[in-house]
Write a protein that binds this DNA or RNA. Sequence first.
DNA 1: ATTAGCACTCAATCGATGTGAGTGCTAACA
DNA 2: TGTTAGCACTCACATCGATTGAGTGCTAAT
Lengths: 341, 341
Amino acid sequence: MVLDERKRYILESIIKDYVETAEPVGSRSIVRKHGLNISAATVRNEMADLEDMGYLEQPHTSAGRIPSEMGFRYYVDCMMEKESLTDEEVEILGKKLQESIREWNDVAQGIGDFLSQVSNYASFIIIPSIKYSHFKYLHLVPIQEGQALVLVVTDVGLIMHRRIDIPRGISPEDLQAISEVFNRVCKGKKIMELRRSELQILRDDLKKRQQVIDRALEAVDNLLDNTADEKVLISGALNILKEPEFKDLDKLKRILTLLEEDGLFKGIIPDNISQDVDILIGKENQSEDIQEMSLVFTGYRTAGEMGKMGLIGPIRMEYWKAAGTLDSVRTIIEDLLHNRF
Amino acid sequence: MVLDERKRYILESIIKDYVETAEPVGSRSIVRKHGLNISAATVRNEMADLEDMGYLEQPHTSAGRIPSEMGFRYYVDCMMEKESLTDEEVEILGKKLQESIREWNDVAQGIGDFLSQVSNYASFIIIPSIKYSHFKYLHLVPIQEGQALVLVVTDVGLIMHRRIDIPRGISPEDLQAISEVFNRVCKGKKIMELRRSELQILRDDLKKRQQVIDRALEAVDNLLDNTADEKVLISGALNILKEPEFKDLDKLKRILTLLEEDGLFKGIIPDNISQDVDILIGKENQSEDIQEMSLVFTGYRTAGEMGKMGLIGPIRMEYWKAAGTLDSVRTIIEDLLHNRF
DNA sequence: ATTAGCACTCAATCGATGTGAGTGCTAACA
DNA sequence: TGTTAGCACTCACATCGATTGAGTGCTAAT
């Protein structure tokens, strides 16, 4: 559907005003605020047209208009210009990342915090499952008599550990030797292939140290069970308290619960995701739970796998800023991942 | 102040009713619900007395009475019987703990979750700073050419790690040797004494491996900076959404923010804390931010240090259940800590 | 095609009124 | 002297109608 210049301008004005104030926008206030040299009556006619076409709606007869979800969709598809991070904001993020040169988990948390602070919406960032990353290194470290640490390192530099009990009398050299066997067998395998059953071969190989290997295998199993899933980090959930549309306690409760309970959240993010910024407005969301919210999200590439991140806000959302921010942040962190890890 | 039997019974009735319903309690409903064989008028006289003494108050002239903070205090001090966990609940906790035989951090999180679920209030659990625990073991583990892992183990079994860059040409044997020097010098020191300046001695000792030691020292510094403070875990913050006293959005926002932002929370928990269950009701709290809430908390002993945990709810709180729960959980986790770590 | 003018709509606000749960006081009673 | 029935009084809360005002749609003039 093609709109003429003036209709586009009016639609945009209404969207900007409505996003800012959360109030229906009237014809008078448009001419006043946006310096049009046509009369309110003309605007009214145009608005009536836009409503017929489905881009606007009226809460009730004597109120102004608000953009419909379709109106937002049109704006996002045909008119929006993404607003990237300012230099200042980029600098802030840079500093934040420099402070935490630590594990990627921490970095991700930092990025999530940044996203929610700069946008004033709730942010999420999903770290891809380690299942598909590659095993690099296993080390058995003696901790004290009777205990050792199983240390697993992956190719993206993720480090996981578990403590195990070992029989007395196993020397550090024994542990070293066992580690070496592990590494020989597992080199380059995918993490998800380190399953116990497939490593039984080791056990048969080295009868004598059977018990240590058994324990180590258990630890690896355990690590996989507990960390293999993708990880969801939410930041700034309380930002939604700022939005007037959630002054209703029940709504608020539903949404906060959705954001706080790990399990619930995963369901609302689409599976197939690209490196473009994608937008789902209100009922466009598959999951009913967030059909009164909008989702702006993108994928980021990390060592072969695809992570996801995005922002969650009201339908009346600053899509231009949200989309621009995500664009900027994605390129920044992909650079970072490429250079640092 | 001593109250006669009947006044005590009436006070208790009012507290139980008010905690349950959050509504002012009238004289009629007391005789009705609690099967007293005196008339409402008599109860009214008693209530007037209790109000004069400060144990009750009236929101307005024509409403029923609600317990004052002083009334709750009297109840807690002189009448309350703690209600321990049921056998069922103990079993649930046991199962939960068995599932997570992992790090103490995870166990603590599990306990926090349990507390908030079983009580329907927000829970907190504070893991004491590792500053005062003792260094047990340091290990430098080669990860790949040019990188090593600094592994620090404390006497309570906490394991921390940081990755460092090392010059090419350092062999695993070199790392082993350096580790041994570290361990010799640091054995039995408190973690907070592992500060860089005090370990310079190492550096002078081994000119040749200077750079590795430098990096390792940096890593240790870094670990201390980032993990040395006590750690606060909050669970079930959203439980406060259930309480009618927080239907006011502003209040709600203040309190949720307090619970979600790490820094803010520490200020509201008293410093000196014993292994008894302690209760702070409303304005008894030092911190203004939670003077419209109550705090029920206790200390737990872990390897020499004192951790803290507790529940946060409205003034109209089920103190008996909260206090009993904390009592039970404390003994359970002290057993656990004693046996397992 | 645009605009001024005007009647119309309807949410929101305000005030008056009624209702009811609960109290305090008094006088009678055991 | 403690207890109780009776009754007038208070006050939050709900309900109803009137008023207000921002905004619309329609019509007729430009």
